[in-house]
Computed example of a mutant assay.
Amino acid sequence: MPNSAEQKTGIVSAPSRDLAALPAPVAAIRLKILEACAKGELEALRIPIDWNETRPLFQRSGGKRPPGYDPIETLRALSFDRKGLETLNVAKAALSQAYSKIERGPVTIYEWPAFAAPPTTPEAERAFWSCVRFYDYARPIANGGPRVTRLGFGADGVWHYFWSEG
């Protein structure tokens, strides 16, 4: 039986790069997002966004969405360049890293990226910082670290979120 800390944060697996271990729906949505990123046009993300019955959250304090809400315009507004290129680059960078499997009761989330420890090589440090939006460089989390942008998918392939931590 999980303790109270595990119930709050979930049971988090060690980071993994084993894409063959992913449930097929998770692998499929990850691939669709990477294909959209490769096109270099933010509008291409509309396909994986619309795969969901409900749209993924792009901000932790997203609140109620207004009528006519367009997720592509939201992502464009969150992108430093206002075109969405930063958004595509961060998504691609995050999905190129290891992932973690997070279990909270009956819910399982696959989350990218999974950085288990601070980077120790120049290559690992570049990979780490490639998952931070420009805006978030100036907004460190409580421990002083950067707000890494994360993507989370349910085991059924539902895209739940694409947001900065913290």
Rank of each mutant, 00 (worst) to 15 (best):
S61K: 06
T121C: 01
G105N: 13
P15G: 14
R147P: 13
T74H: 06
L42M: 01
K39D: 13
G144C: 03
P48E: 03
S61F: 08
K8P: 08
R104N: 12
L45T: 01
D156N: 11
N52T: 07
T121A: 00
I29H: 01
I49D: 08
A24S: 11
G68A: 06
F80R: 04
G62R: 04
R150L: 11
R30H: 02
R55S: 15
P15N: 10
P119S: 04
T120F: 00
F162E: 04
A91L: 05
G40Q: 05
A91N: 03
G152R: 06
L42P: 01
A127F: 00
S16F: 05
F80E: 10
Y110S: 10
F128H: 05
A14K: 14
N143V: 08
F162I: 07
T149R: 04
P56C: 08
R133N: 07
G40W: 03
A94N: 04
R104Y: 11
A20L: 01
C37H: 01
L34K: 01
E6Q: 15
A36H: 01
A14D: 15
P106F: 09
E125R: 12
L34V: 00
F153E: 08
E43T: 11
Y137P: 07
E123C: 10
A116Y: 09
S79I: 04
Y69L: 06
L85T: 08
G62T: 09
S96C: 05
F134V: 02
I47W: 02
A114Y: 07
D70K: 01
S13N: 15
K83L: 05
V148G: 03
A36F: 01
P48M: 03
F134S: 11
P71N: 03
L85C: 02
R139L: 14
T9Y: 13
S13L: 15
Q7L: 15
E41Y: 01
I102E: 15
S96T: 01
P25L: 11
F115V: 06
K32D: 14
G10A: 11
A138C: 07
W163D: 11
N3T: 14
G154L: 05
S13W: 11
A27F: 00
Q97I: 01
E41H: 02
Q7T: 14
R82H: 10
L45D: 02
Y137G: 14
D70H: 02
N143M: 03
L75V: 04
R55P: 15
T120V: 05
Y69V: 07
W51M: 13
E165S: 14
A117E: 11
S61R: 06
F134W: 05
L22R: 04
L31W: 00
S164K: 10
G62K: 03
S100G: 15
P113S: 05
P113E: 09
N3Y: 09
L45S: 02
R46F: 13
Y161A: 09
A44R: 00
L31I: 00
F162H: 02
